[in-house]
Design a protein around this nucleic acid. Structure first.
Lengths: 228, 228
DNA sequence: AAGGCGGTGATTGTGCACAATATGGCCAGG
DNA sequence: CCTGGCCATATTGTGCACAATCACCGCCTT
């Protein structure tokens, strides 16, 4: 099966496609991303695939092992904690800053975003819902007009997606849509302090939903258990 | 002039070399990094150079323009502010966390680091001193045992180097070694709150040394003025 | 029978050649 | 003299082929 995707497949485009696939849990941590295979699927040469994979590796989404290939990253428990600590450090402040700058257009965009998220959830597209849910956080940084921190948060949200894939406790409700809605209202009211607190609580909620016991070994592949 | 560098020149090695060159202000913002030229200098093919450049581009150190090439990035005034806002968000907390974990080995390392910095400064190697000075901040994040945030700070310090190249006010004293020494003492005393405050003040000092007026157009190249 | 070891296959790493595209100078027209 | 379009040139983007390296596996030795 080749040339599944239509022509416009630059390295960055491919990187975005792969990132989305990971965000939506279509490919799971530990899965091997063979250059030839990916290249055939998207109908591009290995040169492009390699660049895209390196890009993802830089964001911590895949780990490249010399002469072994690229694998979707498996964040350790420690890394998982670090990711959420970093988010707790950055995002509440971004929420505060965003609250003081939110425009009507921003509100409309966020509302549409949440609507999409609900629609995806109702349609059973958990992956897409998760992706949108993560992007909501990135949007807040964008509204705060902090492109640099926005990049960091984008990276952290990406890794959070991996963490969720590995350590999420329940399979049932992605919930948290309530938290996003509350945040949206705080933004609408330009309530910086409230938004900051809501975001802080939201992140703590997320963290509490994870099962970060040291041996939470979901056992996708046993051969890597003794690799690193 | 070819094969200036000895054999071991992997993409990552080259990326590190280029990063150091930028940190030490041996190459300045706006300078073009031709693939052929860099390849000849280091005695490697364009393939390796390209990967290294993309890596730097991902860190915001160089900007790649399609079919135009790679240039050392010229952070805008807005970006410069953002970088220091992000640092102000992350680093004080890292300093606090580091203070509670600093070991004797860490202290020895930091002292040696500062000694190197002074030596470089005395030898007139301003670039090297600046590089070491930046790495001091990264070390604090490492001591705090926060690899994820450490990566962000490494990135921010890199960009700070560009910001300093563009917007630094005085040419004379790199000073600030006093601030690092004070921080070191706070770490040694495991004074988390003190370290946090010192770091916050240190970053504000740095920021105040910059000339971030909107039209601080040092005028290296006027053609890029209307590009983005 | 267990452990060490070299052959073999597959996958990645790199250099190279060709294609695509932007740049800058040149020429024609007003 | 200035403006507009066109072509030559240089540089980057991509595919491809060869080389390097590692994992797997069967065999030999003890």
């Amino acid at each position: 099966m080749s040339d599944t995707r239509s022509h416009p497949a630059s390295p960055d485009t491919l990187a975005i496609s792969l990132t989305e696939a990971i965000h939506e849990h279509r490919v799971l941590p530990g899965m091997k991303l063979s250059e030839d295979e990916v290249g055939d699927i998207y109908g591009v040469g290995r040169t492009v695939v390699r660049q895209a994979l390196r890009s993802l590796a830089h964001d911590g989404l895949v780990s490249i092992e010399r002469n072994r290939g690229a694998f979707v990253a498996r964040p350790s428990v420690k890394e998982a904690r670090e990711v959420f600590e970093a988010r707790a450090l950055l995002e509440p402040r971004m929420a505060r800053a965003a609250a003081e700058r939110t425009t009507k257009e921003d509100m409309a965009l966020l509302r549409a975003h949440i609507a999409d998220e609900h629609a995806a959830l109702d349609a059973g597209q958990h992956g897409r819902a998760l992706n949108l849910s993560g992007h909501f956080h990135v949007e807040i940084a964008r509204i705060a007009d902090q492109a640099t921190v926005e990049g960091f948060i984008r990276q952290l949200v990406s890794r959070s997606s991996l963490v969720i894939a590995l350590y999420w406790r329940r399979r049932n409700a992605m919930c948290e849509s309530h938290a996003h809605h509350a945040l949206l209202e705080a933004l609408s009211a330009h309530d910086g302090a409230g938004a900051e607190e809501l975001m802080k609580g939201h992140l703590l909620d997320l963290l509490s939903q994870l099962d970060l016991r040291d041996q939470a070994w979901t056992g996708v592949s046993l051969r890597e258990a003794l690799r690193p």
